[in-house]
């Protein structure tokens, strides 16, 4: 089984969904399905990463992603170290590459990185000897979020192909949206993006999505409604006038959700702004799978770590 998994996921890093083959994504989701069961046992510990060192290098504050990666690594038996690089040490002048070289000298096996700049994970991957997992780089990609969203959808709907998924809100600033668009398209879903023109990036229609600025139209017939967080800074930036107006036209409430298919899943990558992009009652409602997404997050990250572990050196100085 180890052998087949390693063939099914022949990559040293996970820097994005871009470049993954549909069968590789499916293999990760299959492996994640198994990890869900592990997470639900009393004995949650596996040994595939025993003796390995995993560093979570977070240049941006994160609660859920960081703890999810930490838990995933620990459940697989790795030694996990969290490094939150505060903005003050960045101010001291150390460049990303200096940080990478310093870390590399500590001989980690897996490096989970989040950074505010797009392309940061890729740059690190070129400079370190270990496997790099992108936990979010700027507004570029957040591959494990897309994988956990796909796993959640697949477990509920039994498939992803031909489902209509509406990704709603601040597409412009969302790495989650970009990774999801790539992944869902790879698995043959019909992807829509919904938001005001000010929050839709240029050329998004050429990424294989249908674009809607009217939410009712965008939700019509959707099987999955994926809401994105709207940061409060966006008001000051004149992307939208106010949270009141935003909620009126783009906030998910019962009336708008009724346009989607019956039993449509409601998802949100968190953290939520209740009353801005989603009504409280919907976030906690029967169609919401938001809490389940968190559980799937740990499973997916275990799957990714395990898949990458197959390519780690097994003898000193040897890379398999």
């Amino acid at each position: 089984m180890d052998h087949t998994t390693s063939l099914a996921f022949p990559h040293r890093h996970l820097l994005g969904i871009e470049g993954l083959q549909p069968r590789e994504i499916a293999a990760l989701l299959d492996l994640a399905d198994e990890q869900v069961d592990v997470g639900r046992q009393v004995e949650k510990k596996k040994t595939v990463l025993r003796g390995r060192t995993q560093i979570n290098l977070f240049f941006e504050a994160s609660t859920r992603t960081q703890s999810s990666f930490e838990l995933a690594g620990k459940r697989l038996g790795a030694d996990v170290m969290n490094m939150s690089v505060s903005s003050s040490s960045v101010k001291k002048g150390e460049t990303l590459i200096d940080t990478a070289i310093t870390l590399n000298a500590m001989n980690p096996d897996l490096l989970v990185v989040r950074h505010a700049s797009a392309g940061a994970a890729e740059l690190l991957a070129q400079k370190v000897g270990c496997s790099v997992i992108n936990a979010g780089d700027g507004t570029h990609e957040h591959p494990t979020q897309a994988l956990l969203d796909a796993l959640t959808i697949r477990r509920h709907k039994g498939k992803i192909a031909r489902l209509t998924v509406a990704i709603c809100g601040d597409i412009l600033h969302s790495r989650v949206a970009r990774s999801n668009i790539l992944l869902l398209n790879a698995l043959d879903a019909r992807v829509r993006v919904v938001g005001p023109s000010t929050l839709l990036p240029t050329g998004i229609e050429r990424m294989g999505v249908e674009v809607f600025t009217d939410m009712d139209a965008g939700l019509q017939g959707a099987d999955v409604v994926m809401m994105l967080r709207l940061q409060r800074e966006r008001m000051a930036g004149s992307f939208v006038p106010s949270s009141r107006e935003y909620f009126r036209y783009y906030g998910l409430d019962a009336e708008k959700l009724a346009k989607a298919n019956e039993g449509a899943l409601v998802m949100h990558p968190g953290p939520m702004n209740r009353g801005v992009e989603i009504a409280s009652g919907i976030a906690d409602g029967a169609q919401s799978v938001i809490r389940e997404q968190v559980e799937m997050g740990v499973a997916v990250r275990m799957a990714v770590l395990e898949a990458l572990a197959k390519h780690l050196p097994t003898r000193n100085g040897d890379v398999s």
Binding site: M235, A236, S238, V240, P241, S242, R244, E245, R248, Y249
Partner: peptide, 15 residues
């Protein structure tokens, strides 16, 4: 067009 006509933040155009 902008709050208080200050040219900085959009007012609630759609409402």
């Amino acid at each position: 067009l902008t709050k208080g006509l200050d040219g900085a933040e959009l007012s609630e155009l759609r409402l």
